[in-house]
Amino acid sequence: MTKLSIVPPVLIRLSRLLPLALALSSAGSVAPALANSSEIPCNLSRHDHTIPLEKGPGTPQVPWPSAQAAIPKPKGWANDNFFLGRWQGQSTAGRAVIDVLTVEPNRIRWGNKANGICDSDYSVENLPWGRNGRYPDQLVPPSQPTDLVFGVARLTLRFGPCSTGDAVIQLAMPLDGSSALEVVTYDAKGQVIGKFGAFERLPAAGR
């Protein structure tokens, strides 16, 4: 008896599944997948009227793509990174609402249900440190000479902009121990969508 496997177990027509599975396997295009299996009653038809219909237990299998691998980040990003954490942002109207910004090693999310939520993996570009208190697209540049230095990174959402149109989020933090995060968001064409003042670090979730 021909055996196939499936996750999750469902009643399906093997007559449709078998040719597709064989075609994909021969082309080498089936993505690796984790699977459980369960025997269910099946009818196996080979699309050939000269071959009798087979009945009995079988374990059909449907390939489910494995989870996307995390996008490589700069060395030390996951464990030596002052941008990681939860940040309370300023609320403004329309697409510019951020509310709570959460930066994780392989995930970033912000927004609310009313105005849209961004929740995405991302790639990272570390910009040169902003010296003299200045950095790209700063909300309020300093009016007097200063020794303040900003750490700046741009995170490009993968695999595309979120529903609010945001495609890139720039994070900037003064390296004076104040932990005041400043944020700028851009669309896919590089146009600024929103500029935000200082965000306050929040306790980790569950604390």
Rank of each mutant, 00 (worst) to 15 (best):
S29F: 02
P52N: 07
Q88Y: 06
T146S: 15
M173N: 02
A67M: 09
R207H: 07
T185R: 00
P57K: 06
A23P: 00
D187Q: 07
L22G: 09
L139D: 14
A114T: 14
W129R: 13
W87C: 07
W110S: 01
V183D: 01
P41F: 10
N81E: 11
L53S: 06
R107A: 11
K189L: 12
P65Q: 11
R134Q: 12
F83N: 05
A23Q: 08
P52W: 03
G190C: 13
I51G: 05
V140S: 13
N106M: 02
F196I: 01
S179F: 01
R154P: 05
E200G: 14
R46W: 12
R109H: 11
P74E: 09
N132P: 05
A188I: 13
P145S: 11
V152E: 01
V124A: 02
H49A: 12
L17V: 09
L155E: 01
V149S: 06
P105N: 10
G94C: 05
D176L: 05
A172V: 07
P174T: 08
V103G: 00
R201H: 05
P128T: 06
L18W: 02
A67Q: 11
K3I: 10
E125W: 04
G94L: 08
P63C: 11
E182H: 15
H49M: 07
V7F: 03
V7L: 03
A21E: 05
D147A: 14
L127A: 10
I40E: 02
I71A: 14
F150L: 03
M1K: 04
G94V: 02
R134F: 02
G76P: 12
N43C: 12
C162P: 00
V140F: 12
I71N: 07
L171Y: 00
P72Q: 12
P60L: 02
V152Q: 01
F196L: 08
A153M: 06
